[in-house]
């Protein structure tokens, strides 16, 4: 069997004195899209931050393997260069830094970390043009400071555009549907689906089934109180939508 892109084994993580992740097990083979569904507060965003290496969390037990290698000792920027991308639930504003400038900084920082040369300006422009067209991001938006004064839809489109340009091995999308109307949801989903190329793996986090009509997952996991309590195919999402999360309450205790 080939090595999965992501393997999480019995992961426990805490912030300050509070344990949030309580034994997460998850395997995502190359090219698969997995969804995690769970109530607000169940620890989904925490899982995404821990994957990306945010320093506020303490890993007390368990292991995270990316392409078979532990990433627990890696800095966030190293993990990014190794292929982990997080589309934030709440993208952060960077005042005064044009979106275009930020994109180039990110691409070249990752290329540098991997020992590759910098992208030439024409190559960069070409890549931006391609990704921008797919996601309705025009040059006016690229000149604006990143996420500053962006609408909910613009922020999420900008996130997916970054993902398109950075070409990660594993994309973690945290509540990418939140704050989107149906039109924006379609644009964003289309952008995400265009990046499903049979090699890239994705972890799509949501608490609504709606998104999964647009980005159809290979596997659905139910997340409750800091761990995965059930896994199934895409129909599991539909059942959850009908019945709610009540069945799973207390199960994790």
């Amino acid at each position: 069997m080939t090595t999965p892109v992501l393997e999480i084994r019995n992961l426990h993580a805490r912030i300050e004195d509070r344990e949030i992740l309580k034994g997460v097990n998850l395997v995502i083979p190359q090219g698969e899209v997995h969804a995690i569904m769970g109530r607000n507060g169940s620890g989904k965003s925490t899982l995404s931050y821990v994957l990306a290496g945010k320093e506020d969390y303490e890993i007390t037990e368990g292991e995270i393997l990316l392409n078979g290698e532990s990433i627990l000792e890696m800095e966030p920027a190293e993990r990014a260069a190794a292929g982990i991308f997080l589309a934030f639930q709440y993208p952060i504003e960077i005042p005064g830094v044009a979106t275009m400038t930020f994109l180039k900084a990110a691409i070249n920082a990752q290329r540098k970390a991997r020992g590759e040369g910098e992208l030439s300006t024409p190559d960069f422009m070409r890549a931006v043009k391609e990704a921008g067209a797919q996601l309705n991001v025009d040059s006016a938006m690229l000149k604006r400071p990143l996420n500053v004064g962006f609408s909910g839809g613009e922020k999420k489109r900008a996130e997916i555009m970054q993902m398109a340009l950075l070409k990660p091995a594993l994309a973690v999308l945290d509540e990418t549907d939140s704050g989107l109307d149906i039109d924006a949801l379609q644009v964003v989903s289309k952008g995400v689906n265009a990046l499903r190329d049979g090699k890239r793996s994705m972890l799509v986090i949501t608490h609504y089934q709606r998104l999964l009509n647009h980005i159809v997952p290979d596997v659905v996991h139910v997340f409750s109180d800091g761990r995965i309590v059930e896994s199934g195919d895409k129909d599991l999402a539909l059942q959850l939508e009908a019945k709610g999360y009540a069945d799973y309450d207390g199960q994790a205790a």
Partner: peptide, 13 residues
Amino acid sequence: DDQMFYCLQRGLN
């Protein structure tokens, strides 16, 4: 910290 983490996540040191 959030701004820093966001930039680091994109690969900047």
